[in-house]
Design a binder for these strands. Structure first.
Length: 585
RNA sequence: GGGUCCUUAGCUCAGUGGAUAGAGCAACCGCCUUCUAAGCGGUCGGCCACUGGUUCGAAUCCAGUAGGACCCGCCA
């Protein structure tokens, strides 16, 4: 099915050429949905912008465009309003035909992209030997949602977990464990991740205070990097253990991701240094090998260096990230690489991208993009922490959300005098709780800091997961009550639009593909959230105003089709956010 | 010193160079004999931080100012 926006845009472009010649072939007709229904459904704003170059009055330009415009299959006759707006109102026949096409399609007639790309989404990326915390939440669910959306649109998506599985912290940890808990280094059963986190904190403290310990730790890093068997074995055990814990979280969040940690790039690091050197980008500064950056200056006003190799010969994350870019472009053949990390790393990525570009590793045909997100804050506006000031563990946060969701469901069931099995209650609580956490995060523009509030995300009204899940449940309620199998609704049965609420839903349903295209471009999942919220609102209005099961045929079947399309759009849209629907709640 | 981002209703936030800037929450007023009221309708609420500029048109683009968050050589 052709997207309405794309179809109308190309028709407007044709009209521009027909009216004013081929020099306007590249002119954007500036077609946007109207904000006020009295102006129709779409408006083209191009006439005003052409007034100066064409030296004509905008309204006259609009008249000429409309004279050459063929939209008779889609729209009522175009109207020119105000200074030169071209207002387009979709024909009812067009709306119903499009809806029928959606109904027959197993993907709601959303076309796959014409030029699929190899896209890498780098997200989540927790650190080994540390617990996943609220800071990993945003990267994980935003990255997952983007990956799902791009894959649905037909791209070849590789989801990579760039876990922090290498570096000085392991020297520290191994040294400490050798002294206080050697069994942790020989068996992954000996301690759990919680213990490891405690050991890590102790090790860090010693590292900062104890010179001898610091030296021993550095020794251990060297041991590890040179492939010392015992150190390597210890490292593997630590990784395995962390991995098991991470997997529990990923299972619970329903996240699929391929682990390819920093250590993966270790063998490639010497070549990064070597090649930068032969390109004469590398310079020695205060004992370290650095690339001086353009556009970044230090406090003295001199060009700022990016450290590629430390004075002790070790590498740091810039080196790893450069190696990763090369690998992803050369070996993975990525066309687009998306990094979902916090906004604080914006500088870092600009620097990495600059060096990769200057080294010729990053051609213009490849798009690298940092997708930043803001901090998670508590309701006091400060960094999100527990009452005792600790970082909030992700598993505790998810437990809490589910617990609150369960209390809510139980209360409601009691109030309504229903009787439900414990399994049902548990399932609803889990899906509502996890869905609420995800939706609350995704529904905000990711670039701003995000105030975390259980009360708001689990609220039963407003732009929340429960609201949308409820709209979906309402549709399923109709199907149960009427014994309707939506998949068996006649494909020949007509869609009839009469009530204002029916028109509103119909038009909104047809904008699903435009919304997904916007997410693909802007990488902002909150656009999809906004769309789904509006769809839910429109459905609830429809539900309020229009009887479905009691309606007379053929209106009854027509309305059932609208219900079905709404439910399928909600289900698909929510799935692209990583949120599962419920049949009852 | 340099850089990035932010500032929109009491609160939390949307907002694509276009017509009268929108939601949700909170507050207040209504609507359940009828598909789950976790819903719907209504009222109230605005110097889009400020000052300029670009433009036929600016919350949106540019510059400056103020306030805030974050990053900037051997952590990631």
């Amino acid at each position: 099915m052709k997207s309405t926006l794309i179809d109308l845009t190309s028709r407007l472009q044709a009209a521009l050429i027909a009216a004013f010649g081929s020099e306007l072939a590249q002119t954007d007709p500036i077609l946007v949905p109207t904000q006020n229904p009295k102006f129709g459904d779409y408006q083209a704003n191009v006439a005003m912008s052409l007034a100066k170059p064409l030296r004509q009055k905008p309204r006259e330009i609009a008249v000429q465009i409309v004279e050459h415009l063929d939209v008779s299959g889609l729209c009522e006759p175009p109207e020119i309003a105000g200074p030169g707006f071209i207002n387009l109102k979709l024909k009812t026949d067009y709306l119903t035909a499009q809806l029928k096409t959606m109904q027959k399609s197993d993907r709601l007639a959303v076309e796959a992209v014409k030029q699929p790309q190899k896209v890498i989404v780098d997200f989540s990326s927790p650190n080994i030997a540390k617990e996943m915390h609220v800071g990993h939440l945003r990267s994980t669910i935003i990255g997952d949602s983007l990956a799902r959306t791009l894959a649905f649109l037909g791209h070849d998506v590789l989801r990579l977990n760039h876990v922090g599985d290498w570096g000085t912290q392991f020297g520290m940890l191994i040294t400490h464990l050798r002294q206080v808990c050697p069994e942790a280094l020989t068996s992954s059963e000996a301690v759990d991740l919680g213990d490891l986190v405690a050991f890590y904190k102790e090790a860090k403290q010693r590292f900062d205070q104890d010179e001898a310990f610091k030296a021993a730790s550095r020794e251990a890093v060297v041991e590890l990097q040179s492939g010392g068997e015992e150190a390597l074995r210890a490292w593997q055990i630590l990784c395995e253990q962390s991995r098991r814990e991470f997997q529990k979280i990923y299972d619970r969040l329903n996240i699929q991701i391929t682990e390819r940690g920093e250590s993966f790039y270790n063998p490639l690091l010497p070549d990064v240094v070597k090649d930068l050197k032969s390109l004469e980008l590398l310079e020695t500064d205060q004992g370290a090998e650095v690339v001086f950056l353009t556009g970044f200056t230090n406090k003295e006003g001199n060009p700022q260096p990016l450290i590629i190799q430390k004075s002790n010969g070790g590498y740091n994350y810039a080196t790893t990230d450069l190696a990763a870019i090369r690998y992803r472009i050369q070996r993975d053949e990525a066309d687009r690489i998306i990094y979902v990390t916090d906004a604080g790393q914006a500088n870092h990525f600009m620097q990495i991208f600059q060096v990769a570009r200057r080294a010729g590793w990053l051609p213009d045909t490849v798009e690298v993009v940092h997708v930043p997100f803001g901090l998670v804050q508590g309701e006091d506006g400060k960094k999100f922490k527990t009452r005792s000031g600790e970082t909030v563990r992700l598993r505790d946060l998810l437990d809490e959300a589910v617990k609150r969701a369960r209390q809510d469901v139980e209360q409601r069931i009691q109030a309504e005098g229903r009787s439900e099995t414990p399994e049902f209650i548990q399932q609803v609580a889990e899906k509502v709780g996890i869905g609420a956490v995800k939706y609350a995060d995704l529904s905000q523009n990711r670039t701003s800091d995000y105030i975390f509030s259980f009360d708001k995300m689990l609220a039963l009204q407003g732009n929340t997961a429960p609201y949308m899940l409820y709209a979906y449940v309402r549709v399923q309620g109709i199907s149960r009550k009427g014994g309707i199998d939506f998949s068996q609704l006649g494909t020949d049965a007509p869609v009839i639009l009469a009530d204002e609420a029916e028109f509103a839903i119909a038009k909104h349903l047809l904008q699903f593909d435009e919304t997904l295209a916007a997410v693909e471009q802007e990488l902002l999942p909150n656009r999809l959230c906004q769309y789904l919220f509006e769809l839910s609102q429109k459905y609830n209005q429809f539900y309020d105003r229009c009887d479905v099961l009691q309606a007379a045929e053929p209106q009854r079947t027509s309305r059932l089709i609208l219900c079905d399309l709404t439910a399928r759009t909600l289900k698909l849209g929510l799935s692209l956010l990583g949120i599962e629907v419920l049949e009852r709640m």
